[in-house]
Design a protein around this nucleic acid. Structure first.
Ligand SMILES: Nc1ccn([C@H]2C[C@H](O)[C@@H](COP(=O)(O)OP(=O)(O)OP(=O)(O)O)O2)c(=O)n1
Length: 629
DNA sequence: CATGGTGCTCAT
DNA sequence: ATGAGCAG
């Protein structure tokens, strides 16, 4: 639910929200220009009632065609409509072309300020700095001389109601008014910047978009929806009250569902104006502290939420529904589809690794089920998650383990197996796999290859194992390629590190990928005296409040000599006679303090995100250091 | 159990 | 870790 953050009506940030027009349709229109200017829609699947519409062109909307409508239905009310199918891969809808198109747009929109990818086709921008800079170019008295793109004059200015013949003139005056409120001047600069950005998006991608410019995210979002398609709207502070007064609360983000209904049904609140009549305390009593404060603020157009700097998604998911007679009845069917979903997911994880140097750390399986004879059966199939191990085969295997674990729990609640044997009466109607807790591989890394003079060292250290060969050795090849071509490498635990088995009968596997960070002597941020000599920092357990890994109670700070010969783990096998390692769960903070001062900060940074993000994981990070004297 | 496929935030 | 809610 919404969380109230600091904010005030004197907020002078310049925030923009940009939303592509009927996005998937535009993607298809770019590919097939004959679809431009005609009623068109993107539909996924088509065997059942012509499939379902997920994006509709504005020409088709004029006929009453809407999203979620069936293809047949759309044809009925708009016989000329062109229906374009979503690509299908591995038996499921494949949205990758739209994701890629979305990325094209984001990379353009991120050019002028902090940019937050809010969805596949929307971003928020914090243009405050750019607007300030632009304003600074035109000191008092010079504003009228500011060159204004003709296109900017088509902007809509909330509170300045007139689309008459003098519209452009009035917009021009508003933008260049010398005696305007400073905040209005900043927004005017925002308008110019956004005009420019939208123009670039059109030039570079052929996509049109709509935008809103205001002092916060909430208002910018509302503004972008006011005039579409291919238009932009600015909401100056002076227009906020009137802008919100008659606005139905359901139009506000977060109030389109249950909370919005509650406001309406329990308090009779219909518009934002109605909402603003309640005290903060009253709203808090009714909806909790967070919601209460948030509601009180948004009713006044106050929303301090920051634009996060994030251009990439925080998770990847692949799922499919099996409605009606398609429901899955046997484990083999589930396995078939889990394999397909795993392929899809792994493909995207691999792209993310290649393109963005990121890895996902958690795999989650979601399913919905019902009992076929079941009279009642509103029971939910539990979601299950486990550490994500890279490699398609392992994802498949782990996902199946998660499924079986979930199924046991699900059936357990029905308890029975006396002789009625409901064991085979379950039906699966949705399956989805997602990969989350995505982190960047630390930058400044370089290939492990540089540590070994002979290639044979590497080859020897990455032996094929039974498991790694089950996928035909492709994983092995993949890792070798990574090591040789990437400037960072991720070694899966399958290639040597120990798997951690979770306790408990139905527990999912608990195996962690191993992330190794290697520096070549020249690249390391500190002197390396002896090539091939490295220390590793092992850490495990829950994070401490300081962000460092949880350390042991003894706190003796012992630096343990590795028992290389006896160790079965891959990482330890890399250790040589003159190598050292720290086991962070056996020492105290002095392990950081002992490092050369100039790298202490970096080590903390380096350890912090991962140790914070994964509880109960066991990880190992390798770090080159001069051998202690 | 016929929009479906995604993706994010927050409570517990 | 898991579920609920919301939105594109
Ligand atoms: N329930 C939804 C909503 C959206 N989308 C996809 C298809 C849309 O093209 C894209 C963007 O969603 P929008 O809500 O922004 O809608 P459009 O871009 O299609 O139209 P508009 O011009 O109204 O923004 O996301 C989807 O698959 N399912």
């Amino acid at each position: 639910m919404p969380v109230a953050k600091a904010g005030s009506s004197s907020d002078s940030r310049v925030i923009a929200h940009v939303d592509l027009d009927c996005f998937y349709v535009q993607v298809e229109q770019r590919k097939r220009p004959e679809l431009r200017g005609v009623p068109a829609a993107v539909v996924q699947y088509n065997s059942w009632k012509g499939g379902g519409l997920i994006a509709v062109s504005y020409e088709a909307r004029a006929y009453g065609v809407t999203r979620s409508m069936r293809g047949d239905e759309a044809k009925a009310i708009c016989p000329n409509i062109h229906l374009v199918q979503v690509p299908v891969a591995r038996g499921k809808a494949d949205l990758s072309t739209y994701r890629e198109a979305g990325s094209e747009v984001v990379s353009i929109l991120a050019r002028r300020g902090r940019c937050e990818r809010a969805s596949i086709d929307e971003v928020y921008l914090d243009l405050t700095d750019a607007a300030e800079a632009l304003l600074a170019e035109y000191p008092p008295g010079q504003l009228e001389k500011k060159p204004i793109d003709e296109e900017a004059l088509n902007s809509h200015i909330s509170g300045l109601n007139s689309m008459g013949d003098d519209h452009n003139q009035r917009v021009k005056e508003w933008i260049s008014r010398g005696d305007a409120d400073r905040r209005d001047k900043l927004l005017a600069c925002g308008v110019l910047i956004v005009t420019d950005l939208r123009k670039q998006v059109l030039q570079d991608t052929q996509f049109t978009c709509s935008a809103g410019i205001a002092h916060n995210k909430m208002l910018a979002k509302l503004a972008s929806g006011m005039h579409k398609p291919a238009q932009q709207t600015v909401v100056p502070q002076s227009a906020v009250k009137e802008f919100l007064e008659l606005l139905p609360i359901k139009k506000m983000k977060q109030l389109g569902g249950k909370l919005g209904n509650q406001l309406q049904n329990e308090l009779g609140i219909r518009t934002v104006g109605d909402l603003s009549k309640y005290t903060e305390q009253k709203l808090q009593e009714k909806f909790g502290m967070n919601n209460g404060t948030w509601l009180w603020n948004i009713a006044r157009g106050i929303n301090g939420e920051e634009v996060e700097s994030r251009l990439l998604p925080k998770s990847h998911g692949s799922g499919k529904r099996f409605p009606g007679p398609q429901s899955l009845r046997i484990v083999q069917s589930v396995e078939h589809w889990i394999n397909k979903l795993s392929e899809d997911l792994c493909e995207r994880l691999n792209s993310d690794l290649e393109q963005n140097k990121r890895i996902a750390q958690t795999l989650t399986l979601h399913a919905t089920a019902f009992i076929s004879n079941g009279t009642d059966s509103t029971k939910k199939f539990p979601s299950k998650s486990c550490p994500l191990r890279y490699g398609q085969f392992k994802v498949q295997e782990d996902a199946m383990t998660l499924f079986r674990s979930g199924l046991r729990e699900y059936l357990g609640f029905f308890g029975v197996n006396a002789f009625g044997n409901k064991q085979n009466e379950w039906r699966i109607t949705t399956l989805s796999l997602s990969a989350s807790k995505i982190v960047c591989i630390p930058s400044g890394t370089s290939s492990i290859l540089k540590y070994f003079t002979e290639d044979s060292d590497i080859t020897a250290s990455i032996k094929p194992t039974e498991e790694s060969e089950r996928d035909g050795g492709s994983k092995l090849t993949e890792v070798k390629t990574l090591i040789q071509e990437q400037d960072a490498c991720v070694l899966d635990d399958n290639l040597g590190t120990r798997a951690l088995e979770n306790t408990g009968e139905a527990a999912p596997i608990q195996r962690m990928p191993t992330i190794l960070r290697f520096f070549s002597p020249g690249d390391a941020p500190f002197p390396i005296k002896k090539q091939g000599c490295f220390k590793s920092l092992h850490f495990s357990g829950a994070p401490s409040s300081s962000g460092l890994p949880q350390l042991n109670q003894r706190g003796d700070g012992a630096i343990k000599r590795s028992a290389c010969a006896n160790s079965g783990s891959r990482a330890e096998k890399h250790l040589r006679a003159d190598e050292w390692k720290y086991d962070v769960d056996e020492i105290d903070h002095s392990v950081i303090d002992e490092l050369p001062p100039e790298i202490q900060e970096e080590v903390r940074d380096w350890l912090h995100p991962r140790s914070r993000q994964v509880k109960q994981r066991k990880g190992i990070a390798a770090y080159f250091l001069p051998k202690p004297s």
